[in-house]
Computed example of a mutant assay.
Amino acid sequence: MTATPTPRVTIKDVAARAGVSKGAVSLAFNHKPGLSEATRDRIFLAARELGWSPSLTARTLAGSRVDVVGLAVCRPARALGLEPWYMEFVSGVESVLAEHSSSLLLRLVRNMDEEVGVQEAWWRGRQIGGSILVDFHADDPRVAMTERLGMPV
């Protein structure tokens, strides 16, 4: 006997449960003005009850912001695990991003040229909405690259 798959909950389902439009659900989840606190609370309650959350992929395809922050670190993986400062730093970044329903894209690179290439590829591929830069030095090539691309850092 084959089980019938459970249909995926959509923004339309949340809107129907909360008695609002799909646009109102979008306003609530994008933290935009235009809704009363009571309506916003009703929308969030409906979403929790249905187990729904916005699709990051759909938001990206719709042209909304990308809720991923990039961090490329020029360190060998083994050394990174031995440096308590970096472990605390990454943990702190993750905590703050989680509070804002955002994620961290972390990449360990071998040198500054590789980091510049990775950051630029992430940005052009819309994988990140901005980046965190660490370990600055004089004439840092990442500064020119982020300015040229208009990438938030």
Rank of each mutant, 00 (worst) to 15 (best):
G19Y: 02
L82C: 02
M1R: 14
E94D: 12
W85D: 10
D135G: 13
A79M: 03
G51N: 05
E49R: 09
W122E: 03
R8F: 02
V96T: 07
S55D: 11
S102K: 15
E120A: 11
A16H: 06
A77H: 09
T57F: 08
L45W: 01
S21C: 08
A18P: 08
V69P: 00
S101C: 13
R17H: 09
L27K: 12
L106P: 06
D139M: 10
M112P: 02
M151I: 04
L27G: 03
A98L: 05
L106A: 01
F29M: 09
G23F: 07
M151R: 07
S26G: 09
V25Q: 13
A38S: 12
L71Y: 03
V109M: 00
T2Y: 04
A28D: 03
C74S: 04
A3E: 09
V116K: 11
G23R: 07
R126V: 12
L133D: 11
M112S: 14
R148T: 07
D67R: 12
V9M: 02
S131K: 05
T146M: 03
E114M: 14
V69M: 06
D139N: 15
S103H: 15
G70N: 02
L45G: 01
R110C: 01
V9Y: 00
G19R: 04
D140C: 04
L105T: 04
E114K: 09
A38L: 06
E99W: 09
V109K: 07
E120S: 13
A28P: 13
T6Y: 05
V20M: 10
A79G: 08
I128E: 12
K12C: 01
F29T: 03
A79K: 10
M1Y: 03
R8W: 11
W122T: 10
L133Q: 10
E83H: 13
A24H: 02
L27C: 02
R142G: 05
V68I: 12
M151Q: 11
A38I: 10
M151A: 08
M1A: 14
D113I: 00
Y86G: 14
V109W: 09
L149G: 00
V90S: 05
G34S: 06
